[in-house]
Amino acid sequence: MKKLVLTLLVFMVAMACKTNPFTGKKMLNFYGNRQIFPMAFAQYDQFLSENNVITGTDEARMITEVGQRISSAAERWLDANGYPGYLKDYQWEYNLVKDETVNAWCMPGGKIVFYTGILPITQTETGVAVVMGHEVAHALADHGAQRMSAGTLQQIGAVGAAIATSGESAETQNAFMQAYGIGSNVLGMLPFSRSHETEADLIGLQIMAIAGYNPDEAAKLWQRMKAKSGGQAPPEFLSTHPSNDTRISNLTAWAPQAKQEAAKFGVTSFK
C-alpha cells in the first residue's frame, strides 16, 4: 500500500507539470481550464449576488477600464511570445464591491473583485493598475489551480503518513499526524503560496508597464500598505504572503526590467 501511494504521487506530479509562459518554470497543475473555470465562474456569480456590487460610478468604471487595459497587455505579450490563444477560455470580469476590507482577489479564468477598502491605498488609476496587474497575473499563471493541486498532494501525503504509522499506538500516530500537518504547512504550503505572490508581483509589474502604467509606483503602493498596517504582521515564514519590506525591495529592483519589457512593445512613457 505504501508503494502504491508513492507511485501514485510520483505519477501525478510527472503528469501535471506544464510551463508558465511568463517565467519559463514548470507549474504543478492537476486541473485543466475546462474543469476549474466553470466552478470558478459559478462561485463568482454567487458571490456577486450576495454582495453589494457598485456600478455606474467613476470608481467602478475605472476598475473595469484598468482591468481591460491590463488583460489586453497580457494578451499582447502572450501573442508576441508564441502563445496565441492562451486566453481563449478566459472570461475577464472586474467588479468593485462595497466592503471596507483592504483587499482585491482573482478567481481562475479572470474573475476579479476589488473591495472599496483598498481604494484609499491605491489612490490613483496607476495604483489600481498595480493591484490589477497582480490579480490578473494570478489568473494568467493558474495559481488557483496550482493551490488546489498542492492541496491534493498534501491530502495524499496525509494518507501516506497515516498508512506509514498504522502499526503505532494511537498516541504516536496522532502526534505524527499533527507534526505532518504543521510541517507540510510551514515547509510546503506557505512557501508555495508566498512564491505565487512573488510571481504575481513580477508578472503584474511587467504587464502593467506594457499597459502604459508606471512600474515605479508599485513599490510606493506597498509602502502605503505597510504604513496602513502599522508594521504589524506575522513572521514571513508563517505567512501566505511575502513581507511588505520584501515586496518593496523586489518591486523596486524589478521596475527597470518592467520598463525594458514595455519598450519592446513601443511603450516608453507611463501614467
Rank of each mutant, 00 (worst) to 15 (best):
residue 53 V to N: 03
residue 54 I to Q: 02
residue 56 G to H: 01
residue 57 T to E: 00
residue 58 D to Q: 15
residue 59 E to Y: 05
residue 59 E to D: 07
residue 60 A to H: 04
residue 62 M to S: 12
residue 62 M to V: 07
residue 62 M to I: 09
residue 63 I to H: 03
residue 66 V to M: 06
residue 66 V to F: 04
residue 67 G to E: 12
residue 67 G to W: 05
residue 68 Q to A: 11
residue 69 R to P: 10
residue 71 S to M: 12
residue 71 S to G: 11
residue 73 A to W: 00
residue 74 A to V: 08
residue 75 E to W: 01
residue 75 E to C: 10
residue 76 R to E: 12
residue 76 R to N: 10
residue 78 L to S: 09
residue 78 L to Q: 05
residue 79 D to A: 12
residue 80 A to E: 08
residue 80 A to G: 05
residue 84 P to K: 06
residue 85 G to K: 07
residue 87 L to C: 03
residue 87 L to N: 06
residue 87 L to Y: 03
residue 89 D to N: 13
residue 89 D to E: 14
residue 90 Y to P: 15
residue 91 Q to I: 07
residue 92 W to G: 15
residue 92 W to Y: 12
residue 96 L to G: 08
residue 96 L to H: 02
residue 97 V to T: 03
residue 97 V to I: 01
residue 97 V to S: 02
residue 98 K to P: 09
residue 98 K to N: 04
residue 100 E to L: 11
residue 100 E to T: 08
residue 103 N to H: 00
residue 103 N to C: 04
residue 105 W to A: 01
residue 105 W to G: 01
residue 106 C to T: 06
residue 108 P to G: 03
residue 111 K to A: 09
residue 111 K to Q: 14
residue 112 I to G: 05
residue 113 V to K: 02
residue 115 Y to S: 03
residue 116 T to H: 05
residue 117 G to W: 14
residue 118 I to L: 13
residue 120 P to F: 01
residue 121 I to E: 05
residue 123 Q to E: 11
residue 124 T to A: 06
residue 125 E to H: 03
residue 127 G to W: 11
residue 128 V to E: 02
residue 129 A to S: 12
residue 129 A to E: 11
residue 131 V to C: 02
residue 132 M to R: 08
residue 133 G to V: 06
residue 133 G to W: 03
residue 134 H to S: 08
residue 135 E to T: 00
residue 135 E to Y: 00
residue 136 V to G: 06
residue 136 V to C: 04
residue 138 H to N: 07
residue 138 H to Q: 02
residue 138 H to T: 02
residue 141 A to V: 04
residue 141 A to R: 14
residue 142 D to E: 12
residue 142 D to R: 15
residue 143 H to L: 13
residue 143 H to E: 12
residue 143 H to N: 11
residue 144 G to H: 08
residue 145 A to R: 07
residue 145 A to M: 03
residue 145 A to V: 15
residue 146 Q to S: 09
residue 147 R to A: 07
residue 147 R to V: 03
residue 153 L to G: 01
residue 155 Q to L: 05
residue 156 I to R: 01
residue 157 G to I: 13
residue 158 A to S: 13
residue 158 A to V: 13
residue 159 V to A: 01
residue 159 V to I: 04
residue 160 G to D: 07
residue 163 I to D: 00
residue 164 A to Y: 04
residue 164 A to W: 07
residue 165 T to E: 14
residue 165 T to H: 10
residue 165 T to V: 10
residue 167 G to E: 04
residue 170 A to H: 07
residue 171 E to C: 10
residue 172 T to E: 08
residue 174 N to H: 08
residue 174 N to Q: 14
residue 176 F to V: 15
residue 176 F to Q: 13
residue 183 G to Y: 03
residue 183 G to P: 02
residue 184 S to K: 06
residue 184 S to V: 15
residue 186 V to I: 00
residue 189 M to L: 09
residue 190 L to I: 09
residue 191 P to H: 07
residue 192 F to D: 10
residue 193 S to W: 00
residue 193 S to P: 02
residue 194 R to C: 12
residue 195 S to T: 08
